[in-house]
């Protein structure tokens, strides 16, 4: 664990970039330098940044598929259970045999969407580790602009390739400004 002379634990070395385009270019350099534990921060999602960071597709979609299938099965149980076993309802002498199953489709569809949406929302939070009370990046006073117009890049000290001079040199070379050490605590 790296520590500053004052004894703070070091979370990362971070830099600010003047624009989304500069951050995008810098990310490609950091990716090519072989870093693994790093991140970029921006007020909005930057198109193509996932590739620039070397990140693949988000498999959040898997959870949504799981949620959707769960919803579909739930609807099937909720509908077939009462209608076929618990409470066979004869309305106006209309048929209630198996071939009336299309009448169950609307609710199956609705619950598929409902459970899929819940899965999308909660897996987004879960996969992002949110909600969280605290993050070391918030220790950097300039970082407050990340939700306004600031573009930041941070390489964590836990990265095996992290060396103070090497990272500083890389951040400088890619046009990073206000390069600083971010404390963990």
């Amino acid at each position: 664990m790296m520590r500053t002379p004052a004894g703070h634990k070091v979370y990362a070395m971070a830099a600010e970039y003047p624009s989304a385009a500069a951050l995008y270019e810098a990310a490609k350099h950091v990716r090519d330098a072989g870093f693994k534990r790093w991140d970029v921060y921006s007020p909005f999602p930057i198109h193509g940044m996932d590739e620039a960071m070397g990140l693949g597709k988000s498999w959040l979609s898997g959870w949504v598929l799981f949620g959707g299938v769960t919803g579909l099965l739930t609807a099937a149980v909720v509908e077939f259970g009462p209608s076929s076993i618990l409470y066979q309802l004869d309305v106006h002498g209309k048929p209630w045999n198996f071939w009336t199953v299309p009448a169950f489709f609307p609710i199956m569809f609705e619950l598929t969407v409902l459970f899929g949406a819940f899965a999308a929302f909660f897996s987004m939070l879960g996969m992002n580790g949110l909600p969280r009370w605290y993050h070391p990046m918030f220790n950097w006073e300039r970082f407050i602009r990340v939700s306004n117009d600031g573009f930041f890049l941070a390489i964590e000290s836990h990265d095996p390739r992290f060396t103070e001079n090497g990272v500083r040199e890389l951040l400088e070379r890619t046009g990073g400004e206000h390069i600083t050490i971010v404390h963990e605590d």
Partner: peptide, 27 residues
């Protein structure tokens, strides 16, 4: 929720947003 604009978060966020849009469209 402690949102910090991290691109690793935006990646999942955008996928969630896309899928919510996809689910809401037939809805």
């Amino acid at each position: 929720c402690g949102w910090r604009g991290s691109n690793r978060n935006w990646r999942h966020y955008e996928m969630a947003y896309l899928l919510l849009a996809g689910l809401s469209t037939p809805l």
